[in-house]
């Protein structure tokens, strides 16, 4: 973990209530896909934890949904705004577990952390399949970006207004996969947990105090130990999860 000042380079709306923010700054402490950053916003007491969509040495890409007053304020920030950010938080995904044909399943704003993961898996010579689930056509984002990485991409929408009608699990049955990685709302994670035929890593969300393991605000029970979603997670392995 590091505290760094980042500068907003660009920000754009890419779907309904969903914004993509690109920032410049030191990303040295981000070491795995699926980690998150915690952003201090003027006028709000607690930081806002946002998963890392992509990063390289001096650039950070975040995709977030405006779910409350903090993220709404953030979406109005101008280019050039400086943000105090704690980076490199959480454990992230482990690509060494993937096997040859990993399956990536993202739901809504659970999609972003899978982007850098997909990029890494492709770079390692794996053949990922990606299923992106949204509520409707207005919510869909990053289909082409995943395709551009070379992955097989399926999109599902709950109302059937785009792609396959249904949930990500409806698109899973015919796919042959060696391991799965997922991030999204808890009912989706639970459904995937039930129907999945292999082991996998699931990324969880919880209301956090600090985001770096000090306050015990986001604890959960697992089969092996009590874990802090922010520090020992957000990524848990299928076999340890207690619902």
């Amino acid at each position: 973990m590091k505290q760094e000042i980042f500068v907003i380079k660009s920000q754009e709306k890419i779907a309904k209530d969903v914004f993509k923010m690109v920032l410049s700054g030191n990303t040295d402490d981000i070491t795995a896909s699926g980690q998150f950053v915690n952003i201090k916003l003027d006028g709000f007491y607690l930081r806002r934890p946002i998963s890392v969509c992509d990063y390289d040495k001096n650039e950070l890409t975040l995709i977030y949904k405006t779910v409350g007053e903090g993220t709404a304020a953030m979406s109005g920030y101008e280019n050039g705004t400086e943000l105090d950010i704690l980076t490199g938080l959480g454990n992230g995904y482990d690509t060494s577990l993937s096997g040859e044909k990993p399956l990536l399943l993202g739901g809504g704003v659970g999609v972003p952390p899978l982007y850098n993961l997909c990029k890494k898996l492709v770079a390692e010579g794996k053949k990922p399949t990606v299923i992106l689930g949204f509520n409707g056509a207005d919510d869909v984002f990053y289909e082409n970006e995943f395709k551009a990485l070379g992955a097989d991409v399926y999109v599902t929408t709950v109302d059937g207004s785009y792609g396959i009608k249904g949930f990500v699990t409806d698109a899973m049955s015919d796919i042959d996969y060696s391991f799965f990685y997922t991030c999204g709302p808890e009912p989706m994670l639970k459904a995937i947990y039930k129907v999945s035929k292999t082991s996998g890593q699931l990324s969880f969300e919880e209301r956090m105090g600090c985001g770096f393991g000090a306050c015990m605000g986001c604890s959960c029970k697992t089969k092996y130990a009590n874990k802090r979603i922010c520090k020992d997670g957000p990524v848990l392995i299928k076999e340890e999860i207690i619902w």
């Binding site: 007491y45 209301r207 105090g209 605000g217 986001c218 604890s219």
Partner: peptide, 23 residues
């Protein structure tokens, strides 16, 4: 002690609420 169920954290103007429960 595991403490209380989550959510255990809520933001407030100039502060926060916790209900960790002595984990």
């Amino acid at each position: 002690r595991f403490g209380n169920p989550t959510p255990r954290i809520a933001e407030c103007p100039a502060g926060m609420i916790n209900s960790v429960g002595l984990q």
